[in-house]
Design a protein around this nucleic acid. Structure first.
Lengths: 196, 196
DNA sequence: CGCGGACCCTAACGATCGTTAGGTAGGAGG
DNA sequence: CCTCCTACCTAACGATCGTTAGGGTCCGCG
């Protein structure tokens, strides 16, 4: 039974910030508690373990990416791989900028999960990547893209996308929309044949 | 006085592997020692502190990237920003694939350095990024590139490049040359105007 | 008024952390 | 043979780690 109370949400939020700022392993339970003005041991009234805390953050973020892309692709009635890929990138940027802390922890700290959970998240990440790769393969098949190894192109684009959560801050000068527009353009162009 | 003995090199290598695999904070001094079949305390005959070990890895990797790009750009007699950017990407890929562990630690673990060292590395990373940005700005100026915000394009490409060290393994099926070729193509295309 | 439950406390546990002190074995060079 | 040096050892330090046990306060609901 997963706790979902208001206090539990606050804990998730504070933990996300600290895990993002200092990394999971370098953040102690007492660090998180201090940010909440309580004692370290008091956290265990809400959380079963430190790793459970990481898991709840990672799982929530993974779900957010999955659902956003799912929704975006479902809403794109067009079968055009170019448009679908644009929708994928846009959705990813939206989630990454809406919750950069959580997203960053998901992307960079998931290796600290227990072996079983790490494996589960690994499979979901693989599926996510495969989804992107499928769009690129489709685009290559109809000639919308050309001259790239789909696997490498997928990695290229996805690592660039994942980087966003690491550097984006809401206080910065860049709006999520502008980032999305630019990243869509950069990604699509990278897949297109050089103009002859 | 920095030690440079053969044993010290081994220690750097083993530490790079472990820091890459588990992260700096999650790797104990005793973990490193165990991989060398010695006692934890024995490491301190070669290293002043755990953070010194991280620093030597990060500094060496940073220097490798800086020098490789410096050399590549110096050897590219052409003033063409497109060719120069290709040389930049190629050099980066070469270093990242030649020493993926060290490179990965440099890219993802430098925040665990002491404040002064972190600041120093931050400045060098900024300079590196600025170097790439300069090439993109130059390309935009002569019309070789178009339609991108140079700062966002720089981040897009550099995060994709930095990702390589995280996933590349020498045992994998991809040769460094092939990755370099593909990444050069992907990067250059991403900066080019859509074919009309 | 009584009671459960949400919330936090203090105290402490065993383990592990980075690091220091002091000592020993063996080989190289005089 | 003696000495220095490199390399490693054992033992231990204080600090901090994640976590458990048990108790207390206060509020809302019956």
């Amino acid at each position: 039974m997963i706790e979902t109370g208001a206090r539990r949400r606050e804990i998730d939020e504070v933990a996300s910030e600290l895990f993002y700022a200092n990394g999971y392993a370098a953040t102690s339970v007492r660090d998180i508690a201090r940010a909440l003005d309580i004692q370290g041991a008091s956290l265990y009234a809400h959380v079963a373990s430190k790793e459970d805390l990481l898991w709840s953050i990672v799982d929530r973020a993974a779900t957010a990416f999955e659902e956003a892309v799912e929704r975006a692709l479902a809403e794109t009635s067009s079968g055009d791989p170019v448009e679908r890929l644009a929708a994928f990138v846009e959705a990813h940027v939206e989630v990454a900028t809406a919750e950069p802390d959580r997203s960053s922890v998901f992307i960079f700290e998931w290796r600290h999960l227990s072996p079983q959970r790490r494996e589960a998240i690994g499979a979901r990440r693989d599926a996510y990547e495969e989804r992107l790769r499928g769009l690129i393969v489709d685009g290559l098949a109809i000639g919308a893209f050309a001259g790239v190894d789909p696997t490498l192109a997928t990695t290229f684009i996805l690592t660039a996308l994942n980087g966003i959560a690491a550097w984006y801050r809401a206080e910065g000068p860049l709006s999520p929309d502008r980032i999305a527009d630019q990243y869509v353009a950069l990604a699509l162009r990278s897949l297109s044949e050089d103009h002859p």
